[in-house]
Simulated scan of single mutants.
Amino acid sequence: MKKDYYEVLGIQKGATAEQIKKAYRKKAIEFHPDKNPGNKEAEENFKTAAEAYEILSDADKKARYDQYGHAAFNGGGGGGGGFHGGGMNMDDIFSQFGDIFGGGGFGGGFGGFGGGGGQRRVKGSNLRIKVKLTLDEIANGVEKKVKVKRKIQAAGVSFKTCPTCNGAGQVMKVTNTILGRMQTASTCHTCGGSGQIIESKPNHADAQGMVMEDETVSIKIPAGVSDGMQLKVSGKGNDAPGNNSVAGDLIVAIEEVEHESLKREGENLHLDLYISVAEAVLGTSRDIETVTGKVRIKLEEGIQSGKILRLKGKGIPSLNSYGSGDLLVHVNVWTPKTLSKEQRQFFEKSLTDDNFAPHPEKSDKSFFEKVKDMFS
């Protein structure tokens, strides 16, 4: 089981953005591979701290993590990386969070992974798409195949070592101050941090040796996602120039298509069921639609309008794998607006019939009690 991200960084849930950044920097320095050469446990702790910072430093991701926990970022993914966390490697960390150390460094500057100032891997830009899901797809999970237009390195492009940074991807600057000589590192402006520049490229490629290509990406979406949630498919964004680069990610935003009759409220579903006065008096059976198929329910004789029937487990599955929500069937007795002469006479006679007079029992809850029960 994954450790709580707040526990990983040693902070409280209400920590500020600055406190989160400070805590991550402390952990990253403690477990940095340059400080712990060959220590696999330190390397894993370094990755876990970066994974925690990736989520907690982003307001949207942090809000989803606070609500759903690790399940907010679970699922499969094209490219073998999966969603948040599982696909993070050392190159991702140094590419995304290298500036967390303020451009200075530990022992002369953090370089690329395992290198003490070696060449850094540049990560390509992310792509974003929207995927529309029906309520049935959300309830059962689905695999979607989408066509993505992404930049990839052109066939035949070749690179050579950048003459400005000699392949390091960074240039060092030494400044004399009253405190002594200060060394800082900045991204090389010639190669953009990749350590390489184009040696030759085909005519149809752009200035960075890239071409646009359509690719079909398979996205495994877990059951229980919600509208506005974002999933990440690692390695399916744009490529970056250079032989040592890694592709960006594909960010998938979920858009929930409104169901014709079922209304969602978290993990519960609501259905308005209309029956006639005769059905309410005599009782009946009805086939109703659920996200797992049709089910038959029985309505007893004398059922009252406003009655709520709870079908346990017929709602939306929990992302945390804590079971499924319920389907709440709201019974509404439909009153006819026009009557025939015979029908009117029947109801006029019923006005003085004590059997038709309201006699609510203690077990018949009021509207407000039903609403209270529904939200409790």
Results as ranks from 00 to 15, higher is better:
H259W: 05
I303T: 05
I275R: 02
T184F: 03
L327D: 01
P241W: 14
D206N: 15
C162I: 10
R25D: 05
V333D: 04
G302Q: 03
V246W: 01
G78Y: 00
A49W: 15
E267H: 15
K365R: 11
E255Y: 00
I288Y: 05
H70Y: 06
I297V: 14
F101Y: 13
T161R: 12
N355A: 09
N244S: 15
Y53D: 00
E18W: 12
I20L: 14
L282Q: 12
L309D: 05
G76A: 11
L328A: 06
A253C: 06
G14R: 04
G116Y: 10
Y24Q: 01
G266T: 01
C188L: 13
E256M: 13
K294V: 04
M212C: 00
S366V: 02
L250C: 09
I303H: 01
Q304Y: 09
G87T: 04
L127D: 05
D287V: 09
V331A: 06
D249R: 03
E255T: 05
T292C: 02
V331S: 06
P358Q: 05
A17L: 14
T175G: 03
P336K: 14
T134R: 02
E143V: 12
G85H: 06
F110L: 00
S194V: 14
E215K: 10
A223Q: 04
R310E: 13
L299Q: 03
Y274H: 12
S95H: 10
R121G: 10
G156L: 14
D373K: 08
N320T: 13
I152K: 14
K123M: 15
G85T: 11
F94C: 03
T216N: 07
Q304W: 06
D58E: 14
F94R: 07
Q230V: 15
S226A: 10
Y65N: 10
A71M: 06
D353N: 14
N320R: 14
V8A: 05
A49P: 02
H204K: 11
S321W: 03
H259A: 07
I275M: 03
G86F: 09
